[in-house]
Design a binder for these strands. Structure first.
Length: 254
DNA sequence: AGAACCGCCTGCTTGC
DNA sequence: TGCAAGCAGGCGGTTC
């Protein structure tokens, strides 16, 4: 989410009010995306990890970057490696670059309520606690379930649970109401800090201008298996949950 | 209904 | 060095 929010803020600055002269597809997998011509980008929004460009004719371009998708401001318009799709503006182009080709672009005619429960926008803690907290899944799996909470990815889920002192292995049903409140509070703090740092460039995340984020410096557990926990001096472990790596400190996360 | 997997793709890293 | 296996930011679909 912080990475997506970073792009939204930058896109809002760069292309809101500007005219999309045309769009172009470079990847067969994305065939079928309608071409947009001569439409103004009215605003840029986010819902969960979906970037939404609202056009002046009411249509919306929704872009989901999945794992490796990135958006780059490309003034020269030269073709970039792994370039999949682009929007052409008078001053330059915005390129969707995605080595793994998981990213999606949709053009929607009407306003669509995505129904996403975005922690920083319209999340209802009480509704969540009524509907979700008796589930059998682990708290970490639940935090990453986009139907339950939109916007918490693997890195941030690990960091949030570490700060909350809750083990990722704990069943959701065994998390108390006050622990949930703490998790929500810390989740917002972790995500906001991630946004202020323009995202986590632990791998190849870059912002609209190709710059690294700074949030990797603030990580306390993600990617740190075998390292010492700065909170308690324990040793950070890596385990697998639902096919994803979880990093945590068994000593201070219970 | 809910939970546990699988598939989508490619490229980089690790270990033999 | 070479090659195969394992791993990676996410989410929707299928199966059980």
């Amino acid at each position: 989410l912080p990475e997506v929010e970073t792009l939204c803020l930058q896109l809002q600055q760069k292309i809101a009010g500007k005219k999309i002269l045309s769009t172009k597809i470079f990847d067969d997998k994305l065939d079928g995306i309608a071409t947009v011509r001569n439409r103004i980008v009215a605003s840029v929004r986010r819902s969960g990890k979906t970037i939404i460009l609202v056009l002046d004719d009411g249509r919306r371009i929704s872009v989901h970057l999945r794992m490796t998708g990135r958006l780059f401001w490309n003034p020269s318009g030269e073709k970039l490696p792994h370039g999949r799709w682009r929007m052409v503006f008078e001053e330059g182009v915005v390129d969707l670059v995605d080595p793994r080709r998981f990213a999606t672009v949709k053009i929607e005619k009407d306003r669509i309520d995505t129904g996403e429960k975005d922690l920083l926008l319209d999340f209802d803690e009480n509704a969540f606690m009524t509907k979700q907290t008796d589930r059998k899944v682990s708290v970490k799996t639940l935090l990453m379930d986009p139907k339950a909470i939109a916007g918490i990815g693997n890195i941030y889920a690990c960091e949030i649970l570490h700060q909350a002192g809750v083990s990722p292995l704990r069943r959701a049903a065994a998390v108390t109401a006050s622990e949930w409140k703490k998790i929500f509070r810390l989740a917002r703090r972790v995500l906001k800090k991630g946004i202020e740092s323009r995202g986590t460039s632990i791998s190849d995340w870059r912002d609209l201008y190709g710059r690294k984020g700074e949030n990797q410096k603030a990580l306390r557990v993600y990617g740190k298996a075998g390292c010492t926990c700065e909170a308690c001096g324990g040793v950070i472990c890596r385990i697998k949950q639902g096919g994803r790596s979880s990093y945590y400190c068994p000593h201070c996360q219970l």
